[in-house]
Simulated scan of single mutants.
Amino acid sequence: MRVPSTLLVLSLLMSSAHAASPAAPQAVEIIAGSTTLHAQLYKPAGDGPFPTVIALHACGGLGGRSETVLPRYRDWTEELLKAGNAVLWPDSYGSREFGPQCRVKEVRVKARRERVADIVAVRSWLLQQTWVARNRISLIGWANGASAVLWAVRPQNLARDAQPDFRAAVAFYPDCRISAGLGWSTRVPTLVLIGAKDDVSSPPACRQMVDGAQGRSALARIVVYPGAYHDFDRANLPLHASASSNDTAAPDRGHLGSDAEARADAQKQVAEWLAR
């Protein structure tokens, strides 16, 4: 029987979309001090051992009302899985029964404290898993999660154990102002990606921070994308002023929007950096 062309196209599109979606995550629980950390784990097919990425969400949180992992993070999960990585997303806010922290007056889950503790706990848990390539655990974070990454890789936060350290780290548009003022450095190869027009974070502070670290012989690199704004790596996000939105999962200032060229280059940069 001949299938009408419109139905055939629709069927192909649906099949393609289904094939592109990462597999459903596995829910895991990790003890982080007095907190039971809820996390979502994605693994490639097979037994491993796999290089593994600890991924840190932004101030809007990991999931939404009807989904445990937002589309922006599922997109990146797909990219990381294609490169052979397992991906673990700890939910720093939901695990503590908090919603988005973008517009709250008193942030109770701080990047430099609770979120670094989450990273430490997740690393310890991963090192006990047989499917993990223990010498290839890396970090990647967005905005507030990226700030947590910057704190976690400072030389002062080196774990006092005999286990392998993080392999690499990637920070998307972190707030670098405090780190730049503190003379930030890194013990782990660290890549910072930010848009030149990012008016939520501060590109000049990130440049100053990385330049200072390079002056202290740290392996740090920054890529500043001309014309790109905050959230440039999200797909199909029209440029808009964040303050004009009532979305509590968005920053209370600045502009957000996709940049297709910067997004594509960031995907390439991240793949190469994590494979080093």
Results as ranks from 00 to 15, higher is better:
L7S: 05
L8T: 14
S16I: 15
Q26S: 14
Q26P: 04
G33L: 07
A45L: 11
G48E: 09
A55L: 07
H57A: 12
H57K: 04
G60T: 06
G61K: 05
S66M: 10
E67W: 08
E67K: 12
T68A: 14
T68Q: 08
V69F: 04
L70R: 15
P71Q: 01
R74S: 10
K82T: 06
A83K: 14
D91R: 14
S92V: 13
E97P: 08
R108H: 09
V116F: 04
W125T: 10
Q129F: 00
W131R: 08
A133W: 01
R134D: 01
V149Y: 01
L158M: 13
R160T: 15
D161P: 07
A162G: 14
A169P: 15
F172R: 07
F172Y: 13
C176I: 04
C176N: 04
S179E: 09
G181E: 00
P189E: 03
T190V: 12
L191Q: 14
G195A: 07
A196L: 01
D199L: 03
R207K: 11
Q214M: 07
Q214S: 11
A218T: 08
I222C: 06
A228L: 03
D231H: 15
F232H: 05
D233W: 12
L239F: 07
S244T: 15
S244D: 15
S245P: 15
N246D: 13
A250M: 14
D252R: 10
H255T: 10
L256R: 10
L256S: 12
A260D: 09
A264R: 03
E272S: 15
L274H: 01
